[in-house]
């Protein structure tokens, strides 16, 4: 196992006008640190509209120009600057976007899957490969000549996955691959992702659906208001959740209808109102004095990475 991608202290913010010409900084991701190995799926779990997709865009270097980014992203130990990002994206790092809307509506499926090729000689090889991969996903030759609007949701998902595979990527970033699909298509998509992992690909799976995360991933990183609060082994999402150390993670798990449907008071504030200190302290049952003033650093406790001054133990 080697570290394919390391992200360290990545922050993304936008400046926003709020009163006349007054501006304020809107932080969407703060101090994000995580890494992905080969043969591994890391799920990034956060609530909807929390800007998780921006993480994918930051790795690929396709953030809008008014975004402010700090921190570092390393690919196999090498710092990724804009040049390297451009070189890697679409080759070693592939992206499976959220929806069919990411396909060009005026282009046939095959044409946009293979993209622009300079050399005529290469073209044949690539077309052959595209056919091979499409066959693996049961996409018949008819699909090649279709326009995106003719595809069903499940088929479009397969087209997006197989397009991402065309250049033998080492890392795949999948952004919400399951919503909008019926149960069977979800299962199939999940199987496809796990298969890719077994072939050695390292994957970042961005999702808001805790069930998808549990079923596919090896580790789960939980985001709260743009902060990573815990990175834990997926196996810990089991039983009574006694191995989950952060209070928020444990309530998330115990609130699942399949487990206890347990009620926890408090609610997640909006991004304009991120509290000082630990972002979760207002709702936390285990808050201590420090939580109000100081942001806890990420640290390791029993193999779990956690951002908390007073984590839960197994007996709690």
């Amino acid at each position: 196992m080697s570290k394919l991608l390391e992200i360290e202290k990545l922050s993304i913010s936008f400046s926003q006008y709020f009163k006349g010409l007054e501006q304020r900084e809107l932080k969407v991701l703060s101090d994000l640190t995580m890494d992905v190995d080969d043969h591994e799926i890391l799920a990034v779990l956060g609530s909807s509209g929390s800007g998780k997709s921006l993480l994918a865009h930051a790795i690929l270097g396709i953030l809008p120009s008014n975004a402010k980014v700090s921190g570092s992203i390393r690919y196999k130990g090498k710092e990724m600057d804009d040049e390297l990002k451009e070189e890697l994206r679409g080759n070693k790092i592939s992206f499976i976007p959220q929806s069919v809307n990411n396909l060009n509506p005026l282009m046939k499926v095959k044409e946009q899957a293979i993209g622009y090729i300079k050399d005529e000689k290469d073209k044949e090889k690539i077309i052959k490969k595209q056919r091979e991969i499409f066959n693996q996903y049961n996409l018949s030759e008819e699909v090649d000549e279709m326009y995106p609007f003719q595809l069903s949701g499940g088929m479009a998902r397969k087209v997006l996955i197989s397009t991402a595979l065309l250049n033998d990527p080492e890392i795949i970033i999948a952004d919400e691959p399951t919503p909008g699909l019926d149960e069977e298509a979800v299962k199939e998509t999940i199987n496809n992702l796990v298969e890719l992992k077994e072939k050695g690909i390292g994957m970042i799976l961005i999702t808001h659906d805790i069930n998808t995360a549990i079923e596919t991933s090896d580790r789960i990183a939980i985001l709260y208001l743009g902060y990573v609060i815990e990175i834990t082994d997926t196996k810990n999402f089991s039983g009574e959740g006694e191995k989950l150390l952060h209070p928020y993670t444990r309530s998330l798990y115990r609130a699942l209808p399949e487990t206890y449907f347990e009620l926890t008071e408090g609610h997640q504030p909006s991004y304009q109102n991120i509290p000082k200190g630990c972002p979760y302290h207002e709702n936390c049952s285990r808050q201590i004095r420090e939580c109000h003033y100081e942001l806890p650093e990420l640290r390791e406790v029993n193999g779990t990475i956690i951002r908390c001054f007073n984590p839960l133990g197994e007996g709690d």
Binding site: S47, S48, G49, H208, I210, Y248, S251, L252, Y253, A255, L256, P257, F261, E262, L263, T264, E265, H267, Q268
Partner: peptide, 13 residues
């Protein structure tokens, strides 16, 4: 559907 599980419980409760 769009909410995290903690909020889901609160709202239905």
């Amino acid at each position: 559907t769009m909410l995290d599980t903690v909020t889901q419980v609160q709202i239905w409760d």
